[in-house]
Structures are given as structure tokens and as C-alpha cells.
């Protein structure tokens, strides 16, 4: 479904953020992308929908090369890729309904969208999605009247309005409390399974990732260092991703990340 070949990105400042990434994501697979801050996780997913221009390599979506796509072709490609952001990226002064409908912008013309004349099927879909994420009574509220978890639900609904084939999810839980984080992760993964969506989820919280995803990819210093099943993540592999020094710095996380690493074997085992 998504195929990255030899993808590299060097920023104008000279930093090499990604180095020769080869990655294939089949349809319907939920994949977590883990790694320390600055490992290039954000750059990688922003390269996929070309918010960041890759320096070399190619991106193929459903067999179509979109590495150099421009204008209408690029918009066509982006339309198939939904994106969910760490800080929700809602337009705070628009209502919830308008925010969700903005996921359809690539499907309607300028004047229709400007006059808010969306097709009634779009409005029905938006309403159903809001119902699915539990916000059906909130659609007249303004974006800035919502709590963090609610904003992220609207962000999810907006991404799904695109009817995407692939979801890019950038640190969906970094600004949320632990309970809401779990709810949001569960919601994203459930929706992906319901709609047979592939997803790449950038996430700091290894434990949370292990519980919900099919596959984990580890990134360090812009290079792929791990690719496998969540239950194969041993403390040694975590060390190889995050580095020995980083572990000692993040001492608080140590127990947390270490203990469930073994616990996750049970969880993975419990599920058929």
C-alpha cells in the first residue's frame, strides 16, 4: 500500500534527519513508529504526505509514485492520507462541524466550501463520525470550547472524513492525560480495524503502543533499527533504539517501559 524506498531527508541547516529508509506498510496494518526525540519520526511521516520534501528516495502510494507530484496530483494523493496531530491542529474559531467537514475540502470546490454548502452525504458522514467518537451533541460548539481529548476526537473525525487509505498519526497522546491517552489510542486503532485502514503512529509511550498495534518500527538517528512484532520488543532492543545513555536519563520511564515489556507478552498471548 505504502512503499518508501531509500528515503532520505537533509534539512537546509545540514542536519540529516532521515537516512535511507526502506519501509512497506500493507493495507490495514497499524504500525507504531518509536524512537527518541529527534530520531526523525515526525520528519518521516511528514515526508509521506509531502509536508516535508524528501531529499532523495521515493514514496509510492498504491503503486503510484507521489515523490514529485505537484498541484492537483499532490492534492489528490494527500486526500487519500489522513493526518492526526499532537496539538490537534483544529481551527479553534470554527465550529466542530466545520472542522470535521474541512476534511472534505479536497472533494468540493472552493465556492461550495466557502459558502458551507457541503453535499448532504458529507454532512451525514460527518455526523455519523461525530457520533462514533462520542461528540454528536457538540457539533455547534466552537473548537476552543472543547477539552484536549475532545479536540483530538474532532481531529480524528476530520482525518476520517477524507475517506483515507492511510492514516498518519503524530504523537496523538503527547498532550493528554494517561486515561484519555488510552481512550484515544483505542479509538484510533479500533477505527483503523473497522475501516481497514493502514496507519503509521508516532508515539513516545512504548507500553501504550505495544498494547494496540500490529507492528513496531524503531528509528534512531534517522535510521531504521528495529522492525518487528510488538511482543519482540525486549529491553535490549529498547536500549538499542533509545540508547544506553538515554535510558539512564529517562530513569522515570525505565521501570514503566521495562516491566510491561514483559507484560505485553501476556497481553499479546491473550489475544488470538
Amino acid at each position: 500500500m505504502l512503499k518508501l524506498t531509500g528515503l532520505s531527508k537533509r534539512y537546509d541547516t545540514g542536519d540529516l534527519a532521515l537516512n535511507d529508509i526502506n519501509l512497506t506498510v500493507p493495507a490495514g496494518q497499524v504500525m507504531a513508529l518509536i524512537g527518541p526525540s529527534g530520531a526523525g519520526k515526525s520528519t518521516l511521516i511528514r515526508c509521506v504526505n509531502r509536508l516535508v520534501e524528501p531529499s532523495t528516495g521515493s514514496i509510492e502510494l498504491d503503486g503510484q509514485d507521489i515523490t514529485r507530484a505537484r498541484g492537483a496530483r499532490l492534492r489528490q494523493a494527500r486526500r487519500q492520507i489522513g493526518m492526526i496531530f499532537q496539538n490537534y491542529a483544529l481551527v479553534e474559531r470554527l465550529s466542530v462541524m466545520e472542522n470535521v467537514l474541512s476534511g472534505r475540502l479536497a472533494y468540493v470546490g472552493f465556492w461550495r466550501s466557502f459558502l458551507r454548502q457541503f453535499p448532504s452525504s458529507d454532512i451525514q458522514q460527518a455526523f455519523n463520525l461525530l457520533e462514533r467518537v462520542g461528540l454528536q451533541t457538540m457539533f455547534d460548539k466552537r473548537g476552543d470550547a472543547l477539552s484536549g481529548g475532545q479536540k483530538q476526537r474532532v481531529g480524528i473525525a476530520r482525518a476520517l472524513m477524507q475517506n483515507p487509505k492511510l492514516l498518519l498519526v503524530d504523537e496523538p497522546t503527547a498532550s493528554l492525560d494517561p486515561k484519555t491517552s488510552r481512550q484515544i489510542m483505542r479509538l484510533i486503532c479500533e477505527l483503523c480495524r473497522e475501516q481497514q485502514l493502514a496507519a503509521i503512529i508516532n508515539i513516545h509511550d512504548v507500553v501504550l503502543a505495544q498494547q494496540f498495534v500490529d507492528r513496531v518500527v524503531g528509528l534512531r538517528g534517522g535510521e531504521l533499527v528495529f522492525d518487528g512484532d510488538p511482543k519482540d520488543l525486549s529491553p535490549e532492543i529498547l536500549t538499542s533504539i533509545y540508547g544506553e545513555e538515554d535510558w539512564s536519563v529517562a530513569d522515570d520511564n525505565h521501570e514503566e517501559a521495562d516491566a510491561p515489556a514483559t507484560a505485553s507478552v501476556d497481553i499479546a498471548g491473550a489475544h488470538p
Binding site: N49, L51, L74, R75, Q76, A77, R78, R79, Q80, I81, G82, M83, F85, A89, L90, V91, E92, S102, G103, L105, A106, F110, S113, F114, G155, R158, A159, Q162, L168
Partner: peptide, 14 residues
């Protein structure tokens, strides 16, 4: 928000 809406495939004017 600009980044988010560009990533939906919306045109510049939108």
C-alpha cells in the same frame, strides 16, 4: 491548522 488543512489535500484558496 494551515499544515493540517494542507494535508487534507485542500487547495490554497481553501
Amino acid at each position: 491548522p494551515v499544515e493540517a488543512l494542507s494535508s487534507t489535500g485542500a487547495a490554497r484558496t481553501q
